[in-house]
Structure formats: structure tokens, C-alpha cells
């Protein structure tokens, strides 16, 4: 039974990590901004669904949740870009300044959310600071029709969102002119600008897409987890960034595979450790960190993120 649960967890976490890591890689490639505020989009995606669910009287359908999360996540991302990252880029600052600023943004967003939750908790008499699971009515209906009632609902939700986002992105990037220009900007912005593509608008669009898609993993999360808190992003940040790092902040396919592998390793290992040694789930982060360290030593991600041509193993021989 334990192993069955672990497999289900790995499956859902795979989708959550893919949906949050792919946009991170995409945003780094396009804007060269190392956005530490990235996980906040997940949190905002989850919380907009929670809040609307309470207002609607706990009757939210998945379609509405996806739409809301996408728009809100996208807007948060776009606003960060327009108000903070764009003015910074005019100053020609180093990448460190971008990182510190994004960290500042992270805390602003997170604690604004805390305040909002506290206000709502008083207003609606529901604990928003640690919210339970949301059940989507239309997914329940779909399960009844297809006879999938034995499956937990979150697996259906994750599959629906993940597959449709994957198909949509594939069509966008491979079949449309817009997608081609977006890919072009990610590779060489000035070259695309010469071709007469309105770069500013497309960069804005990239930010919107990045925020929107990342927020969708929040929609899965509220369906899956029993407790959603405003520091949800902080709990996912490590896996999220780790997957993007393994992809070298460049390759989308490697990032996707890395997300799946990370989800598998940590859930299986966690299940085993918990079963035999009674280890708490809080060691999850230590497992991922171990993987990150191993990668840093064995195959340091150079290139996109910068790096030194320094070799620890020397070969010297006298002649």
C-alpha cells in the first residue's frame, strides 16, 4: 500500500515540478533573470483558487480554477517584470543585483499574501493560513462518467492540466510564428529585433506565460495536498530550481526528465526511509540537496549560469 501511495505521489509531483521548472528555464533563457521569486507564482495560483472557492461556496470547477490561476499568476509575473526587472535592466546592473531584487520581491509577495489570508480568515471564518483540500466538481463528474472513481482525484487533475499545457506549448512553439519568435528571443534577442519583431511585447508575453503556467501547478497542489500555507512556494523552490539546474537552465527536455526523476527518487526514497527508519517527511529537502550537491561536483552546470574554467583534477607530466 505504501508503495502504491509513493507511486501516486511521484506521479503528481512530476507534473508539479515540470509545470514549475519548465517556465523557470524559459524565463532564464529569455530574460537572463535568475528569478528567486519564481515559486511565488505557484503560491498565488493555489491561493486564488482557494479564495474564489470560499467565495463561491466551495463549488469551484477545474476549468474556472485553471483560468483564474493562469490569469493571476501571469499578471503577478508581468507586474514584477514591468515594475522591477525592466527598470533594473536599464541600469545595466550585474546578475547579482537581479537575484537580490527577486529575493526582495519574493518576501514582499509572500507576506502580502499572509496579510490577505489573515484578513480573509477573520471575514469568512475559515483558516486560510492552512487550508485543506479542494475537490473540483467537474473532475468528480468526469470520474463518474469514465468510471475512474477508484483513482484519487488529484491524478486526474494533474494529467488533465499537464497534458493540455504540454500540447498547447508544443503547438505554440512549433506550429506558430509567435512561438518561433518567442524561441528566437530566448536564443538571440538582438538578432530577432533586427528582423522587425516587437521584442518588448513578446518579452512581456513570455513573462505572462511563465507566471501563468507556473501558477497551474498550484491548481494541482490544492487538489492534492491536505494543507496549503502561504509559504508553499518555499517548500517547492528547492526541487523546482534543482530540476532547472540539471537542465543547465537551457534544455527544456532535460529539465522535464529531471523533474520526473527528482520526483521519483525523493518520493520512493522517502517512502523507504519512512517505512524502515521512521524518518520525518521534512528530510525531503535534504534528499534533493544531496542530489544537487552530487550534480555540482560531478557535472557542474556551466555555460548559461557562468562559471570558471577551473579543473580540480590536474594532469602534469615531466618530459
Amino acid at each position: 500500500m505504501e508503495i502504491y501511495r509513493a507511486i501516486l505521489c511521484s506521479y503528481v509531483f512530476s507534473w508539479i515540478y515540470i509545470l514549475s521548472s519548465l517556465p523557470l528555464t524559459l524565463s532564464y533563457r529569455t530574460t537572463k533573470v535568475f528569478n528567486f521569486a519564481h515559486p511565488i507564482f505557484i503560491t498565488y495560483g493555489a491561493y486564488v483558487v482557494i479564495i474564489v472557492n470560499e467565495v463561491l461556496g466551495r463549488e469551484i470547477p477545474l476549468a474556472v480554477a485553471v483560468f483564474l490561476a493562469f490569469v493571476v499568476g501571469g499578471l503577478v509575473s508581468l507586474i514584477s517584470h514591468l515594475l522591477v526587472f525592466k527598470p533594473l535592466s536599464y541600469q545595466r546592473v550585474s546578475s547579482n543585483v537581479y537575484m537580490v531584487t527577486s529575493m526582495g520581491l519574493w518576501f514582499i509577495y509572500q507576506y502580502v499574501l499572509y496579510i490577505v489570508c489573515q484578513l480573509l480568515t477573520r471575514r469568512y471564518d475559515v483558516n486560510f493560513l492552512s487550508y485543506s483540500t479542494i475537490e473540483y466538481k467537474d473532475v468528480r463528474f468526469l470520474q463518474d462518467v469514465l468510471g475512474l472513481n477508484s483513482m484519487p482525484q488529484y491524478t486526474i487533475t494533474a494529467t488533465l492540466i499537464g497534458v493540455s499545457v504540454g500540447v498547447a506549448l508544443y503547438i505554440l512553439f512549433n506550429k506558430t510564428v509567435l512561438g518561433l519568435s518567442l524561441r528566437g528571443i530566448a536564443d538571440n534577442a538582438s538578432l530577432v529585433a533586427i528582423c522587425g519583431v516587437p521584442i518588448n511585447r513578446l518579452v512581456n508575453l513570455t513573462w505572462f506565460l511563465v507566471g501563468g503556467i507556473t501558477a497551474l501547478s498550484g491548481v494541482i497542489w490544492v487538489n492534492f495536498s491536505g494543507s496549503t500555507t502561504p509559504d508553499l512556494g518555499l517548500n517547492i523552490v528547492v526541487d523546482n530550481f534543482a530540476a532547472a539546474f540539471i537542465g543547465g537552465l537551457y534544455s527544456l527536455p532535460i529539465t522535464a526528465v529531471a523533474s520526473i526523476v527528482l520526483a521519483l527518487i525523493e518520493n520512493m526514497l522517502l517512502a523507504v526511509l519512512n517505512y524502515y527508519f521512521g524518518v520525518q517527511p521534512t528530510v525531503r529537502i535534504a534528499i534533493v540537496f544531496g542530489i544537487v550537491l552530487a550534480i555540482l561536483v560531478a557535472r557542474p552546470p556551466m555555460g548559461a549560469g557562468g562559471g570558471l574554467p577551473y579543473r580540480f583534477i590536474k594532469r602534469v607530466s615531466r618530459k
Binding site: 518555499l234 524518518v279 529537502i285 544537487v292 550537491l293 555540482l296 557542474p300 557562468g306 577551473y310
Partner: peptide, 29 residues
């Protein structure tokens, strides 16, 4: 510094951020 010294500043920042969280997880346990 051994694992992080060769990679770019983003990776360094992230790895050290993780160290903080990992240590906190250890104290809890």
C-alpha cells in the same frame, strides 16, 4: 565552497539557500 566555487553566482546563491533550509530540517529532526 568545494562544490560551488566553479559555477555561476545563481547556482551559488541557490545552493547556499538550500543549505540553510537543510540545516533547519536537521534541527527539527
Amino acid at each position: 565552497t568545494y562544490p560551488i566555487i566553479r559555477v555561476g553566482s545563481g547556482f551559488v546563491g541557490f545552493t547556499l539557500l538550500c543549505v540553510g533550509e537543510v540545516l533547519r530540517g536537521i534541527y527539527v529532526n
